[in-house]
């Protein structure tokens, strides 16, 4: 797999609502990315597609380091993309950092996001 990372600057922390998220569309039919900001101002990014039936995670309620999918209430761990509780499945997790107040996400040119970590 191509390991080169391209870091994209997607704006400031304040562009993402606290306990909320923004969507980043991608070209080439790739699944959009949901960028989340938690109550303690940490930033996470996942593919915007619930492992259950594809619900848009960016429309969910963010609580702690988790998001609840708006369609059937699966609860997804933001750090790993993994479904919590009894459910199983994983939304691809994408590296994201805050550098000098700017939010940057890392994309391998053709990847569809990482697997489940942790």
């Amino acid at each position: 797999m191509d390991q080169t990372l391209i870091w994209l600057d997607i704006g400031t922390l304040d562009d993402i609502p606290r306990q909320g998220s923004r969507v980043l569309h991608r070209d080439g039919g790739l699944v959009p990315i949901a960028v989340f900001r938690t109550v303690d101002d940490q930033v996470f990014a996942l593919e915007d597609r619930c492992p259950h039936k594809g619900g848009p995670l960016s429309d969910g309620i963010v609580h702690g380091h988790r998001v609840t999918c708006p369609l059937h209430n699966w609860v997804i761990d933001l750090a790993t993309g993994g479904a919590t509780g009894p459910d199983e499945g994983c939304a691809g997790s994408i590296p994201v950092e805050v550098r000098r107040g700017r939010v940057v996400v890392a994309l391998t040119p053709r990847s569809t996001g990482g697997g489940c970590h942790g």
Partner: peptide, 15 residues
């Protein structure tokens, strides 16, 4: 507005 507008097409970050 943030609910309805996706993050605009972005530029590569300075390393």
């Amino acid at each position: 507005a943030h609910e309805f507008t996706p993050i605009p097409i972005t530029r590569q970050a300075a390393e």
